[in-house]
Amino acid sequence: MPAAMIPAFRLTPLRCGLLLAAVAVAAFVWALASGPLTIPASHVLAGLFRPDALDPTERTVIHALRLPRALAAMLVGGGLAIAGCSFQAVLRNPLADPSFIGVSGGAAVAAAACLALLGSQAAGPLPAQALIGLAALLGGLASAALVLGIARVDGDPQPVTLLLAGLAVNAFAAGLLGLIAYAANDPTLRAITLWLFGSLGRAGWAELAIAAPLIIAAALQLWRDAPALNALLLGEAEAAHIGVDVAALKRRAIALGVVCTALAVAVAGVIGFIGLMVPHMLRMRLGPDHRALLPLSFLGGAALLGCADTVARLALQPTEVPVGIVCALLGAPFFLALLLRWRRSPDLA
C-alpha cells in the first residue's frame, strides 16, 4: 500500500505519552506475570490491589521478587533516559549520553570497589545498598567534574576535547574495573561481572527505597528547568540575554543528570544505549521541546527497560542474560533501522 493511502496520523506529545504509558503498564504487568512460575495476568492485577487474593507462593513471588525488580527496571530506564536527554541539552551535543562525560564509568568503578571491599555486609549504621549508592554518586560526580574541568577553555567545554576526555576517563575506569575484578575472589567476581554487563538481579526493595526518591526528585527538577533548557539550545549568550542564569542552569542540570545516572548504575550496573537512544527517537518524531521531551524520555526509558528486563529473564531460562546485553542486542539494530528511515530528519543534519 503506498504511503499516501495510509490515513495521516500525527504523533503529538500527548498521544506519544499515552502510547508510552500504555506500553509501560503492559511491560509492568508482563514482568509481574512471567518467569519460572507463570501467574495469570488477572491474578497479577487482583494481587496488586488485594495481596490476600493470591495464594502464598504467588504473593511471595510478586511482592518480594518481581514487583521491586520491575519497579527498579522502570526507574533505572527512566533515569538513564532523562539523564541522557539533559546531558544532550546542556552540552548541546546530540552524541552526549550518561557514559559520554565519564559518569557511568566513574560511578561503576566506585560502586564495584565498594562491593569488592564490603561484600554484602553493612558498615556501621548504613546498609550496603546505601553505601554502594553513595559511592556511585561520588564516583560519578568526580569523573564528571574531571572531564568537564579538563575540557574547559575560557569557561566553555570544547566539544572535541570533551569527547576525548570522556573516552579517556571511561577507558581508565574500564581498566580499574578489570583490576578490581582480577583481584576479587570468586563470588565477588561473579557479582561484579554480572553487574558490569548491567543486571537488575540484585535490585530489591532496599535499593529501590534509596534510588527511587532521588531519581524521581532529580527528574522532576529537570522537568522544571525545561523552558530554560529550551532557551539554552539557542546558544549560551542568547539564553543569558533572555534571562537564563546559564552557569547555574548548566551546573544544576549536569548534577541532576549525574544523580540519575549514578543511582541507576548503583542499582543495575552499566546499561548503555538507553540514554542515547530514547531521547533521540523522541526528538526525531516530536522535535526538541524539553517540556515534552524530558517526561516522555523518562516514560520511554521506563517502558524500554521494563520490557528488556523481562526478555533478559525469560530468554535463556533457567539462567538469565544481563539486561545490558539485551539492550545492546535489541536496541542497536532497532536504532540503526530508525536512523535509516529518518536520516533525513533535520535533527541529524
Binding site: 548541546r92 523552558p227 530554560a228 529550551n230 532557551a231 539550545l233 539557542l234 546558544g235 549568550a237 542568547e238 540575554h241 533572555i242 534571562g243 537564563v244 526528538r283 522535535g287 526538541p288 521541546d289 530528519s345 533535520p346 535533527d347 543534519a349
Partner: peptide
C-alpha cells in the same frame, strides 16, 4: 530580560524547533 534584547550576528541553532517555537523562546 524584559528591558532589553540583543539580536546577535550569528544565528546558530542546530535543533529542529519551528520558527514559531524559536520566537516563543524569547518570551521566557
Amino acid at each position: 530580560a524584559r528591558r532589553r534584547a540583543l539580536l546577535p550576528q550569528q544565528h546558530g541553532l542546530a535543533f529542529a524547533f519551528s520558527a514559531t517555537e524559536v520566537v516563543a523562546l524569547g518570551r521566557l
